[in-house]
Design a protein around this nucleic acid. Structure first.
Lengths: 206, 206
DNA sequence: CTATATTGTTACCCATGAGTAACTTAAACT
DNA sequence: AGTTTAAGTTACTCATGGGTAACAATATAG
């Protein structure tokens, strides 16, 4: 007699399922936050989107703020990953900057990233607040380093890399607030325009 | 006998005093909002800063959201004033753009403007929300026109003025979030760097 | 097949903070 | 003067929404 193989072998184990559900909750929460803003979104709103009741959420998150913290985790991992990829090459600083911009405009479409960009700063718990700031400074610092590399290798003109990094970041982060994949601004066109302004500025050179 | 001149002649009449107090309240509120954010700031917080009790505020404002609306009024008047001044000249589009940027960086230091920039979008009342959006579009449109003028007169290179206007605005508005007059970034340096990136971009031209 | 951990639910508590009613004080104009 | 209007106070109401306790269902393991 054939030994019956255990039925319903779990394709995903418990932890994986849990992780998947957490991701879904973050997505729903991020979408809700982008819709109405953090404070105007109640946990009941989020629960409703996820088709569960509020207390269930507490099985996956510590409290409301924890959602922002978890979103930040996802976002910062993604952004740092991009920075790693971009700086791993031995391209010139300017080319690395171009690659970063291209990648960032891509990333900025994602709801969780959007949510992070819009709500970074709302952290209430002082420790979480500090951690968030530190993280953000770290990322900014790495962009500054790309600029510095470019200045050193001659591909970028001499400039105040601190100020330029911030300005660039604000412009890129701003994109997350208005750009929609389904909107009427074409993705390639957007990237092209950003790159052009970074490369050339806007002044016409005769 | 000398006719006694009416003592305590009001240097300011009632309406002027009222207006002054309203301004002070808006300043206090804006400062509080920049500190802790709109939702984390209670009307009691604002009242405390103004050294009155909460119900007194209702003598000057309709409700909490009305503060944002009144701040927006102040801010938009100021920004439109700048645009009027800048576009009144018959300078080239590029020079007008430069002047706008210089003026905007100046303006962005003010707490009420900062507050407006940070909280534009929080409007809850649908009508107020729509009005705010319309106002914002109008301002953006005028910047776009400056760019268009520049393209036409040849002082600005051919570009997608819609996208460029938004990117520029986001970078400028971002300044309001981090720049402080007392901070270690010098005002002139900041303006110079913004103008340079707009003029030249960052790429080094051999 | 039963015991146990995992998910989820219903029904509550309770702090916070916007907005108001009713009353008091200060100012200003005959 | 004394009456009116402005300006401010104390003491509330009341909706909202974050968070929890206690119970119910479902799934996994032994």
């Amino acid at each position: 007699m054939i030994k019956k193989v255990k039925l319903s072998k779990p394709v995903l184990n418990r932890d994986e399922k849990r992780q998947l559900k957490l991701d879904a909750i973050l997505r729903h929460a991020a979408a809700a936050f982008m819709d109405k803003g953090y404070y105007k979104t109640s946990l009941d709103d989020i629960a409703r989107r996820h088709k569960v009741t509020k207390p269930t959420l507490y099985y996956y998150i510590k409290n409301k703020e924890d959602i922002l913290i978890k979103c930040e985790k996802v976002a910062s991992t993604r952004i740092k990953g991009l920075l790693d990829a971009v700086t791993a090459t031995d391209e010139s600083g300017f080319v690395q900057l171009q690659n970063f911009i291209e990648g960032y405009v891509e990333i900025v479409t994602d709801d969780i990233i959007r949510c992070h960009i819009r709500h970074r700063g709302q952290r209430e718990d002082p420790a979480a607040r500090e951690a968030s700031l530190k993280m953000h400074r770290e990322i900014e610092h790495r962009v500054r380093e790309i600029l510095g590399r470019g200045v050193k290798d001659g591909s970028i003109r001499d400039c105040n890399s601190t100020i330029i990094a911030i300005l660039l970041f604000d412009a890129l982060n701003g994109i997350s607030a208005w750009y929609r994949d389904e909107g009427d601004v074409n993705h390639e066109e957007l990237v092209a325009q950003v790159l052009l302004i970074v490369t050339e500025g806007v002044k016409n050179k005769p």
